[in-house]
Design a protein around this nucleic acid. Sequence first.
DNA 1: TGTACATCAGTGAACGCGCGTTCACTGATGTAC
DNA 2: TGTACATCAGTGAACGCGCGTTCACTGATGTAC
Lengths: 232, 232
Amino acid sequence: MPDAHTRTRAENRRAMEAEIRRLGRAHLSTHGAAALSLRAIARDLGVVSSAVYRYVPSRDELLTLLLIEGYTDLADAVDAAVERADPGAPRARLMAAAMAIRSWAVDDPARWALLYGSPVPGYAAPADRTVGPGTRVIARLLRELSAAPSSGSNPQPDKGFPAELAHDLDAIRTEFGSDLPDTTLLAATTLWAAVIGATSLEVFGQYGADTFAAPEQLFTAQIDAVLSLIVG
Amino acid sequence: MPDAHTRTRAENRRAMEAEIRRLGRAHLSTHGAAALSLRAIARDLGVVSSAVYRYVPSRDELLTLLLIEGYTDLADAVDAAVERADPGAPRARLMAAAMAIRSWAVDDPARWALLYGSPVPGYAAPADRTVGPGTRVIARLLRELSAAPSSGSNPQPDKGFPAELAHDLDAIRTEFGSDLPDTTLLAATTLWAAVIGATSLEVFGQYGADTFAAPEQLFTAQIDAVLSLIVG
DNA sequence: TGTACATCAGTGAACGCGCGTTCACTGATGTAC
DNA sequence: TGTACATCAGTGAACGCGCGTTCACTGATGTAC
């Protein structure tokens, strides 16, 4: 990396912005989102606190940047994992997606907390910029499910969901351009809930220090059980 | 409530301790755990900040108190709901437990966040005092499952879990004094993950403002799907 | 290629705010005789 | 029933720390002619 004297202004700006994001991620890990502080980042940057405002308009804006970056990185990881899996094996593809989610979270618990943990008090994510990146993973799951030829080797009898729920499921089909039947769509949201729950329980330390020696095996077995509801 | 002049010292102390906890819960709701502040509580109490130290030794200790109280309240709510359900209908009892968890979380999102959300940065719960209350709910689920005569109308073929996972499941059986077979025990942890995940997704606002008009119906249908893995 | 001007990065001081915790203290409540 | 002493609740000041954000400023980098 050339030092400041040999870099052009534009290069320097890009480098600074990247460094601020990197430090932001690091502070997330060590102190949590609520304690993310522009002053601390300035300190690590070796720069006076007001200088950071040349690059980032406010603390909340930095949080938004990190949030979007997190959703994007996670979705990229999931996409890559799914694309490595056998195109003809929908169940394996879904499992690959679930495992990619867990791995990403285990590798960076603080960012997982930012995405799927408790909301940051006093901060509201701007929906117009976060919803897109934030729904990429679930959209991918739904697409993989649509590609699955048979919907469930253990097909539930269609229970006739209550009207409001059926209506909500319609709304989802519209939002994601999906045509999955109610039962499968419901099972997809169940898979989603199980993945989020299993991951958060592990990553947020709810499994006591040494309850599970093999959390990845536990996760895989759990998701496998849920998948048996959906896909052959 | 008699005012300070007619209360004895012991009565006053009990009233103050209760009020501090009540205000602590209120601050959790409005500002989140990371921002829980003894000074703010003192202000609401109408008392100088140092006075709070007559009742609570430190901020972290108050957090611990609230954590234990939260686990206890949640477990009490679950116990009450289960006991209202038909003793002969294990599936209905498990569903009652799940719905009690969700209701409790929806009624008090901040306490749910304290229990099952992102860890509070810089705070580590003292295991010796929190593990007991913190495992009451899952212990209850396991007991209800043990009472179930049949283990699964959709019994999974016993997959022969990998050795480490089987070992972990053994450890759980020991910890909770349970004798459920591997497959059922695994399904119980899956149920647990799904309940935590579905509840957190709803309570932490991951379902966009108006994605689901009937979140309770969604939850019920999801849990019902998972229960079909376990109990007839 | 050189000069004049505009843009930009970073400084340092300041505003006003919040926090946890300690300490010596006053005055009221409770207890032992 | 009354007095002497111990306990306790609450005060107010202080220590040392952190934060976000604004502002006028200097000096270096880039651009137009």
